[in-house]
Write a protein that binds this DNA or RNA. Sequence first.
DNA 1: GCATTATTTTTACTGCTCGAAAAAAGGTCT
DNA 2: AGACCTTTTTTCGAGCAGTAAAAATAATGC
Lengths: 410, 410
Amino acid sequence: MTRNVSDSDSVRRQNRGLILSALRSGGPQSRTALAGITGLSHASVTAIMQDLLAQRVVEELTSPERTDGRMRGRPATLVGFQRAAAYVALFEIDVNRLRASLVDYSGVLVDRIETAISPSTFAETQPGDFFGAHLDNLRERTPQAARTLRRIAISVQGILNPDNSGLKWSPIANLAGSSFAHDLARDSGLPVALYKRGRLLAEGTRWLDPGLHQSSVATVFVGSTVAMGLSLHGHITGRSEGGATEFGHMNHMPNGALCRCGMRGCIEAYAADYGILRTSYSVPDTTPPAPAVPAQQFDALIQRAEAGDRDATHGFNLAGRAIGYGLSRMMAMFDPTHILIVGPGARALDLLRPEVEAALSSSLVCRINGLPKILAHPDEREPIFRGLMMKTLSTLDQTDFAALETGSRI
Amino acid sequence: MTRNVSDSDSVRRQNRGLILSALRSGGPQSRTALAGITGLSHASVTAIMQDLLAQRVVEELTSPERTDGRMRGRPATLVGFQRAAAYVALFEIDVNRLRASLVDYSGVLVDRIETAISPSTFAETQPGDFFGAHLDNLRERTPQAARTLRRIAISVQGILNPDNSGLKWSPIANLAGSSFAHDLARDSGLPVALYKRGRLLAEGTRWLDPGLHQSSVATVFVGSTVAMGLSLHGHITGRSEGGATEFGHMNHMPNGALCRCGMRGCIEAYAADYGILRTSYSVPDTTPPAPAVPAQQFDALIQRAEAGDRDATHGFNLAGRAIGYGLSRMMAMFDPTHILIVGPGARALDLLRPEVEAALSSSLVCRINGLPKILAHPDEREPIFRGLMMKTLSTLDQTDFAALETGSRI
DNA sequence: GCATTATTTTTACTGCTCGAAAAAAGGTCT
DNA sequence: AGACCTTTTTTCGAGCAGTAAAAATAATGC
């Protein structure tokens, strides 16, 4: 049972966390600016800063670099994260690729390794060992980071265990089943966090687009799979309080098209690249899906549909309808004001939009509240990485550094 | 912008709130018991209690009534809410009935008035005035409560305004459109809260069934409408952070049966009493729904289906399928461990269950995590009232009484 | 050089929780 | 009846974090 008692310790944690989080989203700032943003008094900011400086969590920036020469008064000394205060290792795993990144505490990418993944990769190597090997690699290449490495976070696809120690199911062959997060944590001695890709998309767009930072956005990935993350007023919501949803495998049509997951009628079976391709080529929708669709083949299909090809258009229509009804069903439970389509499918938004909007219009909530704004952001790599990084660093801020005991505040 | 700064004020609020909430869910208790439950030290509990006693929020119970004669040591003095510390007025509005209740701070029902509602009620009287008249009535009948009346809460059906000041849409004729909560707040000078019925069902079952108190439950009302509330690990979740969902009007079938709301294919159009009746009597599903279905007619239909009547069984099958697929779609975003069916439809759970479970089984999350437990609770009146009352009193605890400034703690 | 302006630090004070010890309130035993 | 035991409740001093206001600091402008 967690104690929710509030005492001076929790007060300090809360207010230190407030300052770190302001620094995280606003970059290096003066103490006065931080006092304004957090609502703390100048005295408290100074006191907390003294602790943070003494603990080498933050540092004063040497180059004041006044933006305007005509500023009066004592110039502010900016305070920013001390880059070497901590490092985190981030893994993004995909059906055919692993990307391992080393990031310092200020959010600067230090090192990156990319490796190809094949369906046999995890048949030959235990997932925990596979990640462990890459972690060692990162450590060897940046020895000074190895000492202060604090956390590991992995972006995954599939359904998580209740304790987030591994996956119960995943489209990545042989990845599910083992508690690889637990294994990796044991072997490395570091905390390991698993995040669903869709959830990170939501987190990432929250950080990428300042305009959307505090609004309610449903971020939908359309590509080799279909996934969704929800960011409601800056809070990530969804299954298991982990912010994950199974949007791609939400049922669209009872007994419908065969999905890669083995079930029938999932949204993904209509709206992922393989589904659109299957419809466009009039392949029966009970045919087992192709393992992977090359990017150029998908782009060619988009071009055909844009040129007016009936079959291709039909494929995108069915995809749009599946996504649209899925969104309309989601909106019976959440009320995002914006829908952001990311991934390869974002390039086809104009083809999808009519059916998406038609489906949304047929729902009561949209008739009452109006349609949400539907936007596209073709790149999904950057949001996922940024989401993974910001989520991990923010967790580090709050869990590790906000809770540090005050030394002797003389 | 809300300031999240933590200071001694917020510490007091938090810890007072902790004690009040323990008292709310555990009933009158000794200080020692409260210290154990909240995690506060005995000294803090005593100090906070002195304030609460001085402010007449709680009182010491006179009758110790030892449960066991063989108890040793100094007998505990129980502390409980002071009944007259506050009163709240609760309204439950339905298509054909208004129930106005006056409840004291300890949760005891003091007075209750029931009034019939007809489709013309709100055509003749402004909703704000209608509630105002009943409020005055309650006040006149219990003058000592009128002085310490602190809050008004209303259970409604329909889609709320973004600012919760009224309804954008409601199945209750002419109720939507006006900001009656705002009007009533202005006229009465008291805060008025609007809650969706489905949300209160979730809140109510949370309080009614201690076994479900901390688990994750989706409570589905099946009757003249279909509604759902979610309680995940004791937290109520859903649209607009208000915990509401539009489950009944989630789309089940594109271009499907005509719903009372005017849209087509809503779950309600298949699973509310009128929908089941329409299917059972082979009336075209685009026929405008009957305004109200008498209870005995619905019960007769259940009996016919239980006796094996094909047409009636078909009606319940389609209803079960609509609910089942709706739940399966909901479970792509939430993961309740229990599904609780309440309302008149709960009596037909055995008829609905096969199709509900079949639909759930066809979803990926249920294949991976297993089916949730499906239970029935035939009475829906009690959970709604209890949910409305507990939510309102808990809000009063935290908003009004936890925040009371400490007088002079001599 | 000195007033002006803005930022940062210091000082004095308040309020809260906590641990330990003391006080209170019954029952039990001789 | 009175000493003892057990459990609950209160009291007391220490410690810590926050605020407000005053003081210190560092640049600009005349």
